[in-house]
Design a binder for these strands. Structure first.
Ligand SMILES: [Mn+2]
Ligand SMILES: [Mn+2]
Ligand SMILES: [Zn+2]
Ligand SMILES: [Zn+2]
Lengths: 135, 135
DNA sequence: TATCATGTTGTAATGATTACAAGTTAGGGA
DNA sequence: TCCCTAACTTGTAATCATTACAACATGATA
């Protein structure tokens, strides 16, 4: 848990029990959960938790690059504390979001060619996962 | 306009004035508009148009692969009638979505390695566009 | 031209996210 | 260690995109 304290301090964020809980949750549940899932699960052990705090915290963590905010689903945001560059696969059958451990080889090229400054790279694949294909 | 009729017929979709209008709109406004923007603009010349029809039509067109539904913004869907594979850049300053004319080189590889069936590939970059960087 | 499945419309409901105001707390300085 | 205050948390209300639904209209087919 000291680990999470350091992460927050290093980024100039105040250390609060709620933020530690959310950081820990993301670190130990690598399922790309929604804000509501995080809220519901943490509410069991921290009944005073507010959903607004979950949203606020996720936004802060995102702004500081401590979580990755995925827009893959289109209907709700998904959160990921694994921040090394990787892609994602969304199974339209079972809804699971699977990590794809590759990095976009074109990002820097696009930046220099187009003159844009790229802060975030998102690679999304959608289809049917291997597990669902078997059935 | 006959062009749009052919596109619908070829895909077994009924030809209606509303669908033709929406197809034409997307083809002539390559700005990746929201459903609401399409609705508001078409409403000027077609006052009887319903927003539900815009949503329904976009969903049908999407299911038939005639439009590409972008989840890049996270708060609203964006639509694109240019369906050849390409990536997108979202400027967080001005909000514009810019086409990046590259294709993901990893898609087939991911498919064979992971055993998933990939139906859609989305490559999103987010940052500040060249035009906004100048200011 | 009659039929009917399909499309359209307007309105109401839903669900994720944000706004806001009041109470609470973390953490730097006395 | 204790205060002070800015920052954080909470609960509720509002917002906004999208979907559900039911009544009506229309396009394709025979
Ligand atoms: Mn991930
Ligand atoms: Mn495009
Ligand atoms: Zn699956
Ligand atoms: Zn811009």
């Amino acid at each position: 848990m000291d680990n999470y304290v350091q992460i927050l301090k290093k980024n100039g964020l105040k250390v609060t029990p709620q933020r530690l809980e959310i950081l820990k949750y993301l670190d130990t549940h690598r399922t790309h959960p929604t804000a509501d899932t995080i809220y519901s699960d943490l509410k069991k052990t921290t009944p005073s938790l507010s959903k607004t705090t979950v949203y606020n915290t996720l936004q802060h963590l995102g702004e500081h690059g401590l979580v990755y905010t995925l827009t893959i689903s289109g209907s709700e945001l998904r959160f990921d504390s694994v921040i090394n560059p990787h892609h994602h696969f969304l199974c339209k059958t079972c809804g699971s979001i699977i990590d794809i451990d590759i990095e976009c080889p074109n990002a820097r090229k696009v930046e220099s060619a187009g003159g844009h400054r790229i802060d975030e790279v998102h690679g999304y694949f959608k289809g049917v996962c291997a597990s669902c294909l078997k059935e």
